[in-house]
């Protein structure tokens, strides 16, 4: 193949048509409260890790719901499991439990 000094940029949009939604569906079936997130950001605001790194648990769980898993498992290593996120969540989502579940179930990638 020819190399002209550039490559064809990969489209970065979320493509629900081609994403593998099976894990997202399984997660939402087992953890339905996750759908009630209203993205208030309280979890990230109070997050110990989020204040020191780019760790953003609100965004990560949304990515997983959209079938975007790449890099999420690695990012979750940053969580210190303090549990303050769960404490502040106005929708009562067990975010700490979610992190542990995702760490167990998502492929290390």
């Amino acid at each position: 193949m020819v190399n002209w000094g550039y490559t064809i940029t990969r489209v970065r949009r979320v493509d629900i048509d081609s994403n593998d939604m099976s894990y997202s569906r399984k997660l939402l079936a087992e953890f339905p409260e996750l759908q009630s997130c209203i993205a208030c950001g309280s979890c990230t605001a109070t997050c110990t890790a989020g204040n020191l790194t780019k760790f953003n648990v609100r965004k990560l769980q949304t990515l997983v719901r959209r079938g975007e898993y790449e890099g999420v498992r690695k990012e979750l290593e940053k969580c210190m499991l303090c549990g303050k996120c769960r404490l502040v969540c106005p929708r009562g989502i067990n975010i700490r439990g979610l992190v542990q579940k995702l760490k167990k179930e998502l492929p290390v990638k």
């Binding site: 002209w4 000094g5 550039y6 490559t7 064809i8 940029t9 990969r10 489209v11």
Partner: peptide
């Protein structure tokens, strides 16, 4: 040239 990748995409 470095930007042609997203032109062609």
């Amino acid at each position: 040239m470095a930007n042609r990748g997203y032109s062609i995409a």
